[in-house]
């Protein structure tokens, strides 16, 4: 399974449509398989990012603020979205694998760095 996180430096990017970097990781629901890949987007575009997500066969997205229309689109495509996440992307990924991630969560790492 593939998960995509929109990132900004070491944290989850504040907004889906403003994201310029993403991390894609393969996992089996409990552990990562191999190293996550980082992709740098040439411009901020929710459309292009959505395209990428679909093309890559991502089945889960972790991001910051996302507009309803895109959220609906992913839901319709059966792609799980954890939005409104604030914190480091490493922690977000960790929590996700442990099944402890919820939309809107502010992770402890949000207050660091």
């Amino acid at each position: 399974m593939k998960i995509l996180l929109t990132i900004q430096d070491t944290s989850i990017a504040p907004r889906f449509d403003q994201a310029t970097e993403v991390m894609i990781a393969e996992h089996d629901g409990q552990r990562l398989h191999g190293e996550p890949r980082t992709i740098i987007l040439p411009h901020r575009s929710a459309e292009e990012l959505s395209d990428l997500i679909v093309k890559e066969g991502v089945d889960c997205v972790i991001c910051g603020g996302i507009e309803e229309s895109y959220h609906k689109f992913f839901t319709w495509k059966k792609i799980r979205v954890y939005d409104g996440i604030i914190g480091s992307h490493a922690e977000a990924l960790q929590r996700f694998l442990k099944g402890q991630l919820l939309s809107g969560m502010i992770l402890p790492s949000a207050q660091d760095g």
């Binding site: 504040p14 907004r15 449509d17 603020g65 604030i86 809107g104 949000a110």
Partner: peptide
Amino acid sequence: TGVMSADAQGVYVDFVLRSNIARR
């Protein structure tokens, strides 16, 4: 924003505002 002030303390401002003007 749906974030309570107490929870927002110490957090980088644009993570809470989610604006398009921050330019990182």
